[in-house]
Design a protein around this nucleic acid. Structure first.
Lengths: 159, 159
DNA sequence: GTTATAATTGTAATCATTACAAATGAATAA
DNA sequence: TTATTCATTTGTAATGATTACAATTATAAC
């Protein structure tokens, strides 16, 4: 059995590139060629890319590009509040342009990361009385429907 | 103003060392001197220590101890399901003996990590229909009451 | 006690990220 | 325009957590 794609509602509330550009100009951050390309890449790829993925892909169109520029720019965007980081992955930091509160699911089989919506305001939380909470990250992991279907198929073939 | 400690109910549901030892013997995992010490350390320190903290502290009583042993043993315990890892920290992995579902709060000021209880079963989650969820991690960050009180005090002195 | 197996150790490698200094580009004033 | 200043990019070297691996030591089986 294979679940139809529509069955998993992946959030793609992607802030437009224009919106991001405006945020930068409001903060008097100059948009160089490299920064522009990185911003565009982030807006076009809501798939939580790593610094290396951004670098490798952009290197094709900007052969002189340096990895340091990627890290510099990502930090710049981060401090300007345009993006957020994901530590769901054990070894590599991922970057996300979707700032609205949402959870992330990591498939331990294929490594894909999915967004999902979760409302924490109504959760029963105890032990944080008197704390000032500024960020909320929710990371789930397990197996995504694709991998579940594939595993199921493989089992059927064997039998 | 200083919040009384009782106001923040930190969970300390620490599984006893005996319980952990039994889990290992059930899985036919031999408890060597080093493993015993590391297990004891984990049971005694629910403060989510890093591999380096465990190593540095245990090195005092076992001078020949190697860091590789720490990593080997932590992986062993991890795969045996005795402990879980925390990626709340950007740069270092932390280890936790408390397996019951709970959240972690990282104070961005002092770096302390606090446990808190959160009930996700009643949260309104959308977008994970058809997913097989095996792990749930909730990481919050911000400022802990200690740091808030300290900052408040510092401001009062200035005025 | 000897042999086989498991655990530990130390060192070297890996790999993401950062530090830093030199080179390049853009903006501004004369 | 040209010189000067400042911002940005680049490349290389350092950092630091983690892992790979081979040698040594300890434990268990016979």
């Amino acid at each position: 059995m294979h679940l139809p794609l529509a069955q998993r509602e992946v959030i793609r509330v992607n802030p437009t590139l224009e919106k991001l550009k405006k945020q930068l100009s409001d903060k008097d951050i100059h948009l160089s060629h490299q920064r522009m390309k990185i911003l565009q890449y982030l807006a076009d790829h809501p798939s939580h890319p790593t610094a290396d993925q951004i670098f490798t892909d952009l290197k094709k169109s900007i052969p002189t590009l340096s990895k340091t520029t990627i890290y510099n720019t990502l930090r710049l965007f981060l401090e300007a509040g345009l993006i957020r980081v994901l530590n769901i992955d054990d070894y590599e930091t991922r970057y996300d342009t979707v700032l609205e509160d949402h959870g992330h699911f990591l498939c331990s089989q294929c490594g894909s990361i999915y967004n999902f919506s979760i409302d924490l305001t109504h959760s029963d939380i105890k032990g944080l009385e008197g704390f000032d909470i500024s960020a909320r990250d929710v990371y789930f992991s397990g197996r995504c429907p694709h991998c579940l279907a594939r595993l199921q198929d493989e089992n059927n073939v064997k039998e």
